[in-house]
């Protein structure tokens, strides 16, 4: 099997598993981790095509994505912890009235 095609298939599989996790799991932290899995799948796609094109810009961009992802987690986890402190649970169904 062609290597690029295989890696694209792997990225699709990981993204889909992360998406399933975000949809079906109830724990807010687990949902966050599944989102990280989706980010990782997309980064895998970016690296695959950057390596194929031999582009340094791709590597620099991947580094910036890593930093932004770390920043996003550093904000998301305090928000989840605040919600958990307020409602005494991490179950997202307890936050249903937050919609809208």
């Amino acid at each position: 099997m062609d290597r690029t095609q295989f890696l694209v298939a792997l990225a699709i599989a990981l993204f889909a598993l992360g998406l399933v996790g975000v949809i079906v799991r109830r724990n807010a932290l687990v949902m966050l981790m599944c989102m990280e899995l989706m980010v990782n799948a997309v980064v895998l796609l970016l690296v695959t095509f950057a390596v194929r094109a031999g582009s340094t810009a791709g590597a620099a961009y991947v580094f910036l994505i890593f930093v932004v992802a770390a920043a996003e987690i550093a904000i998301a986890i305090p928000i989840v912890l605040l919600l958990a402190r307020q409602r005494r649970t991490l179950d997202v169904s307890a936050f249903a009235e937050l919609e809208g």
């Binding site: 799991r25 724990n27 807010a28």
Partner: peptide, 12 residues
Amino acid sequence: DPSFVARYSRLL
């Protein structure tokens, strides 16, 4: 926490 015991929501 209840979300540790029941893993999946009704959207499964």
